[in-house]
Computed example of a mutant assay.
Amino acid sequence: MPAGSNKKRERQYEHIKDNAKQYGSSEGRAEEIAARTVNKERARSGESKQASKVSTRDPKSAPQRGGERSHSGPQGPTKDQLYEEAKKKHVDGRSQMNKEQLRRALGR
């Protein structure tokens, strides 16, 4: 648990950690996810001594974003991500393909 936290943040940390473990993360990874999330929330609400610009200026908090940046939302992975996957799978003609063509070539 991050130092200097209150009871609410401790409960939030445990809840996030438990959920991460439930979804298959290792103990260490679950702790990291929980600590980063709680620290960001603390920075956004002014509870921490230091805060990065990203933490304080992000338009939505992590729970409000709800995975918007996970690349599994409505639009899925970016064209660059699809291209890199196609490159690893040695898909011919990938440099001439658009996003939809890459998606089809990869079987998505």
Rank of each mutant, 00 (worst) to 15 (best):
V54H: 07
K89Y: 04
S61W: 02
A20R: 11
D18F: 05
A3T: 14
L102V: 03
Q50W: 14
R44M: 09
P77C: 08
H90D: 15
R29M: 15
P63D: 12
A30R: 03
R65D: 08
R108C: 10
K88G: 04
H90Q: 14
S52N: 06
Q81P: 11
K49W: 06
L82T: 07
I33R: 05
K88F: 00
Q12A: 00
L82D: 10
E85I: 01
Q12N: 13
Q50H: 13
A3N: 13
I33G: 04
L102S: 07
K21I: 10
R108N: 13
H15Y: 14
A105F: 01
R69M: 06
G107N: 02
G76I: 01
R94M: 02
E10V: 04
Y83W: 01
G73R: 04
K89W: 06
K21D: 12
R44I: 09
S45L: 15
A3F: 11
G66I: 09
R104K: 15
E84D: 11
E100K: 08
S5F: 04
A86C: 05
D80M: 05
R9S: 12
M1V: 11
R44E: 03
E100V: 07
S48F: 07
S52Q: 06
L82C: 03
N39F: 02
Q64P: 02
S72I: 12
G4Q: 02
G28H: 10
K7Y: 06
G28T: 03
D92I: 01
K89Q: 00
E31N: 03
S55T: 05
G66C: 00
G76Y: 03
E68Q: 02
K49I: 14
K89R: 13
T56F: 04
Q12G: 08
G67Y: 00
R103D: 12
G46W: 06
Q50T: 15
D18Y: 06
E32T: 07
P74M: 11
H71D: 10
H90L: 10
T56E: 09
N19K: 14
S55N: 03
D92W: 10
Y13K: 03
M97E: 09
K99F: 04
G67A: 03
K21Q: 00
K88I: 00
E14W: 04
A35Q: 11
S70F: 01
H15D: 13
N39G: 08
K88S: 10
G107I: 07
S5Q: 09
